[in-house]
Design a protein around this nucleic acid. Structure first.
Lengths: 338, 338
DNA sequence: GACCGCGACTGCAACGTTGCAGAACAGTAT
DNA sequence: ATACTGTTCTGCAACGTTGCAGTCGCGGTC
């Protein structure tokens, strides 16, 4: 009932299976009259190609996997939205998978060989996989990495220039006259590449301004959730000489920090200025609204998907490429005031 | 290189293709010695079953589709997270698709027949499809609807009791002594089922408290984003006699409203108390933290996935079921103060 | 000694599609 | 009449797997 096959259509239209296939796919030249008959039969039988069979034959599934640590982290949700939309433009469907930051799950998804998996390529936002582990991968399945990596392992990368962005964010705070600026979110260990780049930018800003970095103002965060930002802010506020401004390595940290500052009766930005990273929608509607480093998410999605699609079409011998997306500083109330 | 097939393994192990398949799937009885040899060959050749082929043969893909209006709306992101995790427990992968509320895209995804699509079932959070359109569906693909519908069209449903939840939220504001309570988010037209149920609960609370509903305090919102909440709050505050409390039909509306209230120099909850709906994480870290109706998202995901999986296993003759998830009122600072 | 039952394994035929090579036919040039 | 060209259509053989229906050998039973 719900299932008519190429064969059924062929029978009804009085042509060969192959011809129906040709019509459906628009391949070979088909006489107008024949095409008309076939199309009529297709409509009458409500024929829909069996994608499972088509996939097997073509050796491709038309599915891309997007692997993120946590889908309910706004940055990843916004990114996923853009990636799904972009993939659709290229005729692909997206499977979203989350790893919860578990190395095991990340590895599993990455190592899956092209044949074994039911997707054609992967866009990975790595969290717990170190550079070395990625390099061991022997799969032939195209992979695009999101996020800058300190060392390149021969993969396509899409990223923004984290060092520059962090330098600019810190510089923004300097320009507003802040003397004691803190950095929140450092991760000085193997899997914290991105955080380390931001710390580098933070230091670079100091260097360029001819200032010394107060190491006690660099606080680490193992995760990047609101609660971590709240905890880190408590730490900073309990210092003998607390900072007057904080550069947070993502917006969630900044929002958690803002909550702590405000609930202590302090004002943002008058007592503590805050700038975040990611430009998630929450920040725009916080009170005060959150200044942030805004990466071009749309562009990141475009670059990642089109790179992946290009690789799927090619022979696979192209060298890996580094693709850079834009970013800009969004100065809002949490640094400027109103 | 990256691709070994059942045949290659069979050759190496000196057995038939069929036996390798049996070992891999654990089907028929296999002698220990044979099993050992096969497993060794599997390991040596790094054999991984070709899922495309397996899917074709089995007629199932092992993929469920989750269709939501917008993935970057926190409620849907949090829900998606739970659904993906739950599906994994049942051995399924999830394709997430977003419709942007476009009726066309929703229809397209729903009408896809079981054969035509590459997923085995759909979980749909409908936005723009009316009840009538859903009923026209002739596809044999199992479908679970999220969200209560005023009329049932013969589908499995998973929902919370919106009327009761809305009544309780409104009652919570009454208990705190508020006289003029507004409702934000009504959608008095065909596709606004959920909003209408919440309005019904709002009215019911008035009835039970022996109060008259001031119709000017029910404001509609075509969409449920922060900006819509901000706009609606402007409307409410410009009334000759503004409300002292607002029941917002979701947390984003409430957060947008909160921003407007605070930026006018008014206090929450002293001047205007706010309660939302959905219990998204943003609300917990807002200042003041947002009171809300918390639906058991985890339970919703569990019910939806297990219902769908059950239907996939059954003959499809079971009657549709209505499944109810829990909810509770989370009273926080935006109604209680500190 | 014929028969049965059982454990262990195998070959064939699909699942529904598309790639390939070619057939059938008509029209044109020689 | 023959060869050639091109358009339109077709049959066969896969893609890699699993369902089905066996086969084969062997110990045990009547």
């Amino acid at each position: 009932m719900a299932s008519s096959r190429l064969r059924d259509v062929a029978e009804r239209a009085g042509v060969s299976i192959r011809t129906v296939s040709n019509v459906v796919n628009g391949y070979a030249p088909v006489a107008d009259e024949t095409r008309r008959r076939v199309e009529e039969a297709v409509a009458a039988l409500r024929y829909q190609p069996n994608l499972l069979a088509r996939n097997l034959k073509r050796g491709r599934s038309g599915i891309l996997a997007l692997v993120v640590p946590e889908l309910d982290v706004p940055y990843f949700a916004e990114l996923a939205r853009a990636v799904i939309a972009q993939a659709r433009l290229h005729g692909y469907t997206v499977v979203v998978d989350q790893t919860d930051g578990e190395p095991e799950r990340e590895r599993e998804l990455i190592m899956a060989s092209a044949r074994g998996a039911l997707f054609d390529g992967v866009i990975l936002s790595p969290m717990s996989l170190s550079q070395g582990e990625l390099a061991e991968r022997d799969s032939r399945m195209p992979l695009v990495l999101l996020g800058e990596r300190s060392a390149t392992g021969g993969f396509d990368h899409v990223a923004i220039d984290n060092v520059t962005a962090a330098r600019e964010a810190t510089g923004h705070l300097f320009e507003l006259g802040h003397e004691r600026v803190a950095a929140m979110g450092d991760q000085p260990y193997e899997t914290g590449d991105t955080a380390q780049l931001r710390t580098a930018g933070f230091r670079l800003a100091h260097e360029q301004a001819g200032r010394a970095v107060d190491e006690s103002l660099i606080v680490g965060c193992t995760r990047f959730h609101r609660q971590d930002g709240a905890d880190a802010m408590e730490t900073l506020l309990s210092l003998p000489e607390p900072p007057t401004a904080v550069f947070c390595y993502n917006d969630l940290l900044a929002l958690g920090a803002m909550r702590v500052v405000l609930s202590r009766g302090l004002r943002v930005p008058q007592d503590v200025a805050l700038i975040g990273f990611d430009d998630i929608e929450d920040g725009r509607y916080a009170t005060p609204s959150l200044s942030t480093v805004a990466p071009a998410k749309q562009q990141i999605a475009e670059l990642a998907v089109s790179r992946l699609v290009a690789r799927l079409g090619a022979d696979g011998d192209e060298p890996p490429s580094e693709l850079w997306a834009e970013h800009r500083i969004e100065a809002r109330e949490s640094t400027l005031g109103r």
